[in-house]
Structures are given as C-alpha cells and as structure tokens.
Design a protein around this nucleic acid. Sequence first.
DNA 1: ACGGCATATATGCAATTGCATTCGTATGCA
DNA 2: TGCATACGAATGCAATTGCATATATGCCGT
Lengths: 150, 150
Amino acid sequence: MNAKLKPAVVEAWVNLVRIERTLLDRVEEDLKRAQLPPLDWYHVLHEIDRSPKGMLRQTGVQDRTQLAQYNVCRLVDRLEREGLVERHQCQLDGRNNVLLITAKGRALRRAMWPVYAAAIAAHFGAHLSEVEARHLARLLGKLVRTEAAD
Amino acid sequence: MNAKLKPAVVEAWVNLVRIERTLLDRVEEDLKRAQLPPLDWYHVLHEIDRSPKGMLRQTGVQDRTQLAQYNVCRLVDRLEREGLVERHQCQLDGRNNVLLITAKGRALRRAMWPVYAAAIAAHFGAHLSEVEARHLARLLGKLVRTEAAD
DNA sequence: ACGGCATATATGCAATTGCATTCGTATGCA
DNA sequence: TGCATACGAATGCAATTGCATATATGCCGT
C-alpha cells in the first residue's frame, strides 16, 4: 500500500480532521449549555430506539457507533444507572446482551434531538448550500461504505 | 437560528461523524503498531516545526489544533518531558509561552510522517479519485473557513 | 462428554480529559 | 501609583478512555 499521497488528499484530510474537532466541540457545547448529556449518549439511545422493538444487542451498538467495546460497555453502565436502558442477557445466546430502551430513555432522546438538530443546522448546515450538502453526503457516504467493507 | 434541517445536511453530518471516528481510529492504530506516539503529538510538532524558526506560542498551538487550553498545556508537558520541545517564557509578554521544537522533536516528526502519510493514503486517499478528493477538500475547506471566522 | 477455540462482555489499573479554579503577568484608567 | 480587569498558563480533582486481561458462554471436532 504505497500509494503516492496526492496533495488534494492531504488537503481533504487536514480539513476533515480540523473541522471534525471544531464541530463536535461546538455541538457538545450546545448540548452542555442545554444541560443535556454528551453526544454519544444520544447516538446510543438513537440506535437502540430505532431498532425493531427498541432492542439492540450491545455489539450492534458497537458496530453502529464505532465506539470501542469497553467504551460501549461502560457507557451502557451509565445509561443503565440512569434508567435509560435495560440490559438483559439474551435467551438464545447467553453471551449477548440485549439492550432495551426505556420510556425515560426515549424521552431523553426526544428531548436531545431539537438541541442537536439546531446545533447541526447552525454550525454545519448553515454553511452549505443544498447542492453542497448533497455532494458532501455522497462523498462521505462513499467513504463510509468502503471503510465498513474492510 | 431555526434553519430547517435538510435531509442532505443530516446525511452529511451522520456520515461525517461516522467516518471521522473510523478513520482516526485506524490511523492511530497504524501509528501505535509502528510504536509511534498519538496523532496529536504529530500535529503539535508539525505546527511548531513549520512556524518561523521552529517557534510558536502555546496559544498558537491551541488555535491551529483546536485542542483545549488545558490539553495543550498538558500535551506540551509530555512533549517537554520527552525532550521534543522547549518551553520558554516570552520576553515581551511574560504571560506567553514560546515553544521551540528540538532536533529530537523534528526527528520524531519526520519519523512519524511516512507512517501517517501511508495511513492517510490507505484508509482515505485510496477510496477517492483525484476529482473526488479535490471536491471534498473544497467543501471541507469552506466549512473550515466559515467556522474559523465566527 | 470433553478439550480447544471463538465470541460477547466486563474489569483493574494507568493515562488522558474535562471542569473549575488559581496563579502570574499585563493593560487600562481613575 | 493603585486597582479592576483581562489574558495565558497551570493545576486539583473527578470522569472518561485505553489497554490488557479476565469471565462467561457457545461451538466444534473427536
């Protein structure tokens, strides 16, 4: 894998790294200001919530969020402690945990979304035209798909 | 700031968050495998190295890397402990620290680059055509510039 | 049934990060 | 000069993360 590194690739990379840190910081800041928990809580709750019957295996969360195994484990600890999800051992395969979102969990997710959405709109969407947003979505989507593959 | 959130913006955002975590993980993994320190060390050394005379104020590092003030402070602690940079109080304004990269620091940066470059090429560049890379660089660059402004 | 391997989750401990505050230095102005 | 304010850097403490490993369960071949 000695592909020569094109300047455009480096430029895209540098911009990606830079903008990602800035944007995540600002979104987290907005959530904090609204006294809401961090973004990862939202992502995890969201993934469970949108799964059939509000249930998802812990590995499912890992796959969908790209969080490290031990971080998912401990984040779920915290969510469970707050009564936002329930953790059940799977009947069919005792190695799996099945996570079940609670009413409180759904409520929190719903409460977070307006703030999160506004942050995305303000810090990200506001600086892109419709066409640019579509291009960006397409380019990044391509990367997501190729990365997920290997 | 109640801009309605367009689907394309959400999609771009979701893909951005997702790919960013994946890519940074992989790059960090490659560095670790090569027994090299984390990416942020590279970024900080790089910023100092490319500044005039290999000197940069600590706030300069903050601005360029988007790292939190206290994280820059402590990262510089570590770099200093390893003899990669020197920290000097500024003569003109005693509040500022001026960071000076050492020969060892330059050497480490140079040693890291091939590994870092290969990781960017393999995990990122390899999945983009020249044209796509240019588009992506342009779109992300626009975001960087507008974000830096406010 | 049993040993060996694979998978899913959990955990002890060290390192890093976030938060709030503090410290030292400059600047503006009465 | 003297004091309020601002700025850059550092730090104590709690929370989170990373790493290595442990535990627990299931699967497979014999």
